[in-house]
């Protein structure tokens, strides 16, 4: 594996200066932030990139004002089941999904604005023992769910007000799917990572499972974040939340692997290690957009990497108010969202 022979290149002093604080959102009514995301929202004829924040019992929509300030537009109150994550639909406008559950996702809801009633609404999209969910382009949602006997992998189409009748069941692999990634610029291609470290490729249009390929890495349960095809190869960006430091690999947070889907052979292209001084267990959660990755480390800092260079390019230390809990890219990697447990969300220009 080429990646494991490379010496990780790290900036000796990744600085906070490459992240410039633009604005700060503080939800005074939120006691425990669980996720943050961005969504396109149209109001009075203009489409704006808005911010969605979630705490356990409610989800709020924020719109931009002048001077980098933000105003809360609406708060959806949820029921007794806690919100676990926001599921953004990449190119949708005026709607966003959320996953709710206790230890695992038990239901997915759509939050939207109804112009008919001139009101904000919510509708139930799916229930079950849901292991993974991802919003796809063209208002589609893919999820893997388990019953005692079998796994179901399903792509749902969403209308502006809820689940539509069009859906596609995908052929499920034997092992549980943990994460999905759309293959960029290939509308019908979808990949997933499984609990035994396989990459699977589906044809979403036909539902066929096209290939299962082993990641070839000793750490289990890799998570796929991004996939793109180039020159007959499939490149997949993976993270390894459960990896431990080793002499041969360093302390890998993210890896880019090239697969030949025809032969299922693979080779490591680049890997991105933790910044110096961050050893042992590595990070809690992360996000990838374009060639940039960001993750919250167990130290409470946020690290940002350039995945093409394998460099850590910025490090945001824990603030005076406490550790960082969340980090997400906005619709482009030019803007990073960073959240603290008390509901404060900071927007950084990167």
């Amino acid at each position: 594996d080429v990646a494991e022979q490379l010496t990780p290149v790290l900036l000796s002093d990744p600085r906070e200066e490459s992240l410039q604080l633009v604005s700060k959102l503080k939800d005074s009514s939120s006691s425990c932030a669980v996720d943050v995301s961005t969504v396109w929202w149209e109001a009075a004829g203009s489409r704006e990139l808005s911010v969605v924040t979630a705490c356990e019992s409610s989800v709020s929509l924020w719109k931009p004002l002048a001077s980098d300030c933000w105003a809360k537009v609406y708060t959806w109150q949820l029921g007794e089941i806690p919100v676990i994550q926001i599921v953004a639909l990449p190119d949708a406008c005026n709607l966003v999904c959320i996953a709710l559950g206790d230890l695992e996702i038990g239901e997915i809801r759509l939050l939207f604005y109804s112009s008919e009633n001139d009101s904000f609404k919510q509708s139930l999209v799916k229930t079950g023992n849901i292991k993974a969910v991802l919003g796809l382009k063209d208002r589609r949602l893919v999820s893997s769910s388990r019953t005692v006997q079998e796994q179901q992998v399903e792509v749902l189409s969403l209308s502006e007000t809820g689940r539509s009748k069009d859906g596609q069941t995908l052929m499920a692999p034997e092992e549980t799917v943990l994460a999905f990634a759309e293959v960029e610029d290939m509308r019908d291609a979808l990949v997933g990572t499984t609990v035994v470290n396989s990459i699977v490729i589906w044809n979403v249009k036909t539902g066929q499972l096209l290939k299962k390929m082993h990641v070839g890495y000793p750490y289990p349960a890799s998570i796929c974040h991004r996939a793109y095809a180039d020159s007959g190869l499939l490149f997949v960006v993976l993270s390894h939340p459960h990896a431990k430091e080793s002499e041969s690999c360093g302390n890998p947070a993210f890896r880019v692997i090239a697969f030949n889907p025809k032969t299922a052979r693979s080779t490591g292209v680049m890997f991105s290690s933790l910044p110096p001084g961050h050893s042992g267990r590595q990070y809690l959660e992360g996000d990838v957009k374009d060639t940039s990755a960001a993750a919250v480390l167990t130290s409470g800092a946020i690290a940002v990497w350039d995945l093409q260079l394998g460099h850590c390019t910025a490090l945001l230390p824990p603030g005076p108010d406490g550790s960082w809990a969340l980090t997400r890219w906005a619709t482009s990697s030019a803007c990073l969202l960073a959240g603290q447990r008390d509901g404060t969300v900071c927007l950084y220009r990167y």
Partner: peptide, 23 residues
């Protein structure tokens, strides 16, 4: 990545695998 490491590469891998895979 060289072809020898990864085996023969096809630019049409998605269409070819779709034609080969069970429906």
């Amino acid at each position: 990545c060289s072809e020898s490491d990864l085996g023969p590469i096809s630019l049409n891998w998605f269409e070819e695998l779709s034609a080969e895979a069970p429906p």
